[in-house]
Design a protein around this nucleic acid. Structure first.
Length: 405
DNA sequence: GTCAATTCACATGAAAGAGACCACGGTCTAGTG
DNA sequence: CTAGACCGTGGTCTCTTTCATGTGAATTGACGA
């Protein structure tokens, strides 16, 4: 782009009325004034938590629901409400929200407690102390303040999956060690089968109250999208069918409202970038591609080298055998992977480890790996790519760059 | 043809190690009065 | 005498290896009709 065209571009950009008036309304952490289709859940949670205002310990709650069903949103909504009322009436209530998936913040037992302790204004080292020590510090601090603590642990299933369910036992036992304060736990899990796998003793005390957030259906998603779109966009910038398509896309994979909103936002950004004055249906497709690509790129880039190399190997095996799309197996990938290691001077990992990496890639949704038995010919993972093939070249380039190939 | 045993090619689990990070307490050193 | 440098010990955390055990159906081979 020469300078003249650039001038023209900026001029035109400025002249154009922006599509967005308040982009925040489409962002994941935005809490709207009312949450449609979640009245029942909100009432139930509010009912359980209400005793807190009388300084009585509310029951522990366990909340299930897939991503984007509004769990965190509802909890945040209620807790900010609860906090304002508590403040008005001088009730010593503290609510801590922690997402257990956040890397290097709360993804291990030590870090979780350390982070909680920090919430009380005590600086604790990131590592180096025994876990027991950090528990003591935390308990001491909570007890000193003499309050009611509501602890919201989002994505707690991830934490337990990683560190074992001992941590839940320790958490539920916190109250027995506290004399002046009390702790209520609110666990949020994406995995509906999560509690089936934990110690029954812990289970009964952790899920005194249980609550499921069902996925939104397409109609509900449309309602939500309309509500937010009204806040986010200028009037009449959304073409017909756009909302419906967004909702349909999101409803297709388990009614994820967050995804629907993101789709709409990115579509808006795309059409704005193209200097168009309306969001059209085809922008949704582009947005979906872009979101998928960005998601994968972000995940891949935050992973170690061996991880990238494994993914690279999968890509190359896939593109070699792409004809009639027949599936590929762990063994194939490991062979290619070993060669790839040699050509970029890395020491190959054992097959055991690569097998785990493949499982992790599956968890991230980059590939689909299904364990199958081929009878006499053994047992292995059947691997397929789970991302649109249009996004692969770009990802592959990034991988190569990262690996110096 | 039928049925149980065999067999393959990994999956899956458990434990433990390497190496990075860090805190803590003790010892040593240099600067200060 | 004291602040700071340095060291050893012991802790967490991530990535990895090693060893051990598990698994599901195609294949095999014995058996009976």
């Amino acid at each position: 782009m020469g300078q003249k065209e650039l001038d023209g571009f900026f001029e035109k950009f400025l002249q154009q009325d922006p599509l967005f008036v308040n982009k925040k309304a489409l962002q994941g952490n935005y809490t709207p004034k009312n949450l449609p289709h979640r009245e029942d859940q909100i009432n139930l949670i509010a009912g359980v938590l209400a005793p807190a205002l009388r300084m009585e310990k509310p029951s522990n709650i366990f909340i299930y629901g897939k991503t984007g069903t509004g769990k965190s949103l509802c909890i945040n909504y209620i807790s900010s409400y609860l906090l304002t009322i508590a403040e008005k009436n001088n009730i010593p209530l503290k609510i801590i929200y922690l997402n257990c998936k956040l890397k290097r913040v709360a993804d291990t037992e030590y870090r979780l407690i350390a982070q909680l302790t920090r919430e009380f204004g005590v600086e604790v080292p990131a590592t180096g102390l025994p876990t027991e020590e950090i528990y003591k510090l935390f308990v001491k601090q909570v007890d000193k303040e003499k309050l009611l603590l509501i602890l919201i642990l989002d994505e707690i299933d991830q934490l337990v999956h990683k560190t074992g369910d001992e941590i839940l036992y320790n958490l539920t036992r916190l109250n027995t060690e506290l004399t002046n304060s009390e702790v209520t736990l609110i666990g949020i899990s994406n995995d509906l089968l999560f509690v089936d796998n934990i110690d029954p003793r812990v289970k009964s005390s952790l899920s005194e109250e249980e609550l499921v957030f069902p996925p939104y259906n397409a109609m509900q998603l449309q309602g939500i999208l309309r509500q937010r779109a009204k806040l986010a966009f200028r009037k009449d910038v959304i073409d017909e069918g756009v909302i419906e398509k967004c909702a349909a896309y999101a409803a297709r994979d388990h009614g994820d409202a967050r995804r629907a909103l993101e789709l709409l936002r990115v579509a808006g950004e795309i059409s704005e970038r193209k200097n168009e004055n309306k969001i059209k249906v085809e922008h949704i497709d582009e947005a979906e591609d872009k979101i998928e690509r960005d998601r994968v790129l972000e995940q891949v880039n935050s992973q170690p080298k061996q991880f990238k190399l494994t993914l690279y190997s999968i890509f190359s095996v896939c593109s070699n055998t792409n004809n009639n799309g027949h599936p590929i197996f762990t063994g194939d990938i490991y062979e290619v992977y070993k060669d790839a290691c040699q050509s970029c001077g890395l020491k190959p990992l054992t097959q055991r480890r690569v097998s785990d990496i493949i499982a992790e890639l599956d968890m991230l949704g980059i590939i689909n790996a299904k364990v199958i038995s081929k009878g006499r010919y053994g047992r292995t993972r059947e691997i397929r790519l789970a991302i649109p093939s249009s996004t692969i070249p770009k990802i592959n380039d990034t991988l190569k760059e990262g690996l110096g190939l």
